[in-house]
Design a protein around this nucleic acid. Sequence first.
DNA 1: CCGGGTAGCGACGATTCTTGTCGCATCATT
DNA 2: AATGATGCGACAAGAATCGTCGCTACCCGG
Lengths: 341, 341
Amino acid sequence: MSESRDTLFRFLTMLQLIPRYPGRISTPVLLEKLRERGFIIDNRSLQRDLRGRISQYFPLSCDDSKKPYRWFFDRDYHCNLPALDVPSALTLVLAEEYLKGLLPPVVIGQLTPHLQSARQLLDEVQRNGLSQWAKRVRAIPNGKALIPARLGEVIWQTVAQALLEQRALDVTYLSRSREEHKIFTLHPQGLVSRHSVTYLLATVNDFEDIRQFALQRIEAADFSDTPWQESTGFNLDEYIRGGAFGYPQNTDDVRLIAHVEPQVAWLLTVTPLAEEQTLTPFPDSDWQRLEAVVPDDQQTLWWLRGMGASVTVIEPKAWRDDMRATAEKILAQLDQEPVSS
Amino acid sequence: MSESRDTLFRFLTMLQLIPRYPGRISTPVLLEKLRERGFIIDNRSLQRDLRGRISQYFPLSCDDSKKPYRWFFDRDYHCNLPALDVPSALTLVLAEEYLKGLLPPVVIGQLTPHLQSARQLLDEVQRNGLSQWAKRVRAIPNGKALIPARLGEVIWQTVAQALLEQRALDVTYLSRSREEHKIFTLHPQGLVSRHSVTYLLATVNDFEDIRQFALQRIEAADFSDTPWQESTGFNLDEYIRGGAFGYPQNTDDVRLIAHVEPQVAWLLTVTPLAEEQTLTPFPDSDWQRLEAVVPDDQQTLWWLRGMGASVTVIEPKAWRDDMRATAEKILAQLDQEPVSS
DNA sequence: CCGGGTAGCGACGATTCTTGTCGCATCATT
DNA sequence: AATGATGCGACAAGAATCGTCGCTACCCGG
């Protein structure tokens, strides 16, 4: 039996098993995990591999302050197999540009190793012009970029893990009034990132009903000894549609009819509102008639409002009325308020 | 000299040098690249490694239809070193949810291997509940999710590479009127992804001025023999601020003063509009007074419009006037148009 | 049609590396 | 203080690596 082929593969497995810095793994545990994966290996060999071989060629460090030594990679070390190609690296950088306004910094930090290897590749491609690429790529987000909520790194990691491994959490939560610290046991059922705020959906203690918890208001989170309870019949999509995050969204789509400015019409030919969409020019003006089947949700309404006077809603009537009411109310308020204070 | 340590590292280097499927690399070229990196290795050894060792343990295929054999990985193969942890995998999935509405499908496809390894990890975490995680994570985007523009995979890859490697492109471009096919030589200077449309900024032929080209209107792109010309003094940020993508944006920020509904006030405490922002309650109502230093751009104005009657702009006067004018114009248009057609 | 050049591959043997074992030192824990 | 766990140097048997040689197959140009 040529066992040697195992060697290469065993090394790769080891490299995958050793975590990045905040994490660490002790030699015996690593040995155990390798055994689980079918690598019958001597304790001594493992030690030799770690110290003599791998750590010479990888940013691998060892915490030898206590006796079962613990090994870990440098915080930002990352390696892709196969290596990134240029278009993928560019995609990653572009994705980061967008995500900066959408996810808490800590969550993006989770991607740092990936992003760094992308940046590194791009740097190498442009040996001459120093980091030109950073000046050549921009993302302009769709809506107003709010500043994402601050959030502790450990909180995010704990919550993510609890959600996925189906474990209960003991949390200290700062209630909305900013006054009370409350301690709950949560049974995570889902996670929703909305605009720039991330919410955990969970049942509390022994109750059955789902509640929302903004992640940035969780002050401490630990895995609980209480067994996790699944909320039977919970369906995230239905929950969102039910209106938990704003405007109640009907399951049925609606037929939108509107008159739009030429500029908006042009925009819509490039990025349609919906799969089913028609634009027909008017004979007597350069505006166009838009007809589209769109979801009946807050986002669509926002989009229409954001277009301002460039779009005139004809149908559905409810939206037409909403636009009128909103415009009238704005005027009333503007008239009422003094110009300055 | 123990040379063996080289072996492991050489394998890793090989794994990095072999591209994913659409790409391929021939044995002699691979040999050359390994030599460049200091691995003095015999031709025979390389052949043995590829056929005998690596391809046994990796999804590596070989195109042996022609004589310099060409090697490549399966299209979706990907391996992270060190392996992803659960929170990072969740972050990737969440990022994908957001990006689906922001980047053309092809561009996201570029990330498929990464995303797949994330999904795979999550699947493994939840052995019992079959792929529960997919039902437990959602992103609700900030604005209306338009359908991203369609775009050819090869076009994206070619453009990305040309931009970063500073090469000129010969493109066939479908001009805005959808009538004419034009052939240009472009000298890429920058890339801007705006909402869901991606634009290449480039000078054309021998001209000096920068023009925008929507990627989805590029029908064919090839590297040009013409040497790339840098547009001296071009600065992407200045260009965007100059108003090339809509509302001209002044460098100076403005001081926004507005009265906001309690609900909006609450939203703003969680995700502020800007670093400098104050909210002060009014004594005689539950509305609050918002004061913030915000950029003078289209996005901010959109955000204000999207809020409808929940926000009353006090300052700057230009915006207040804009809100009033927009509201009046909407009313006028609604009155003018028949209710239905 | 034919030959030179290139690439793949089997075989082989010397070199080199790998790996289990043993013994000892060190550290942690009780 | 004792016991068990862990780290590590040394060693030798066994295994794998790697360059070389020779053969074959294929591509191309003459």
